[in-house]
Amino acid sequence: MEKFIKLSDTAIPLAIENIDTDQIIPARFLKATDKKGFGENVFRDWRFYKDGSVNKEFILNNKNYKGSILIAGNNFGCGSSREHAAWALAGYGFKVIISSFFADIFKENALNNGILPIEINIKILELLLQKIENNPTTKLSVNLEEQELNTPFGNIEFEINSYKKLCLLNGYDDIDFLVSKKKEIEAFEVSYKK
């Protein structure tokens, strides 16, 4: 996994609530057996019409808005457990996602793929969405070490599980950790017979 320490970039405002993983990556694109190429189809049915033509209204197709930070409406990532959603967002180039609420499994999947989900107060989220819609060159900075998001409205502290933070900062993941715990796990298996 890539390390995540600091980031300063412009953001894309996607002011839609309850974005589910079927919208992030529709099921018909889940047929691959590797993690590559999902970025091309992120938000597929919003970006393109059924005949394949580009939906110019959709924010990702608006050249004024760029950046590796996605700001989304309340309750992001609900629905299916497909990690393909995280791969698609990462593949498209997003490194940070800001919302006022994330679904459990999505949050976990994002963190396992080096994407930092940042939860902020819904009022500030709305202000932020508006600010960036009006002013696409606005820069946001994220400092994971300090757990700080720097916005035009001031510094916002965000929460992250201290273990997950350590993983992101160092670029290592749960598999490495669990494999290192082999002895404890084996001891547990002996003591616990089912």
């Binding site: 457990s81 990690e83 976990e108 999947n109 993941d173």
Partner: peptide, 10 residues
């Protein structure tokens, strides 16, 4: 409970 693919690997 449901898990993501990274967790399947775990």
């Amino acid at each position: 409970f449901g898990i993501g693919t990274s967790q399947v690997a775990q």
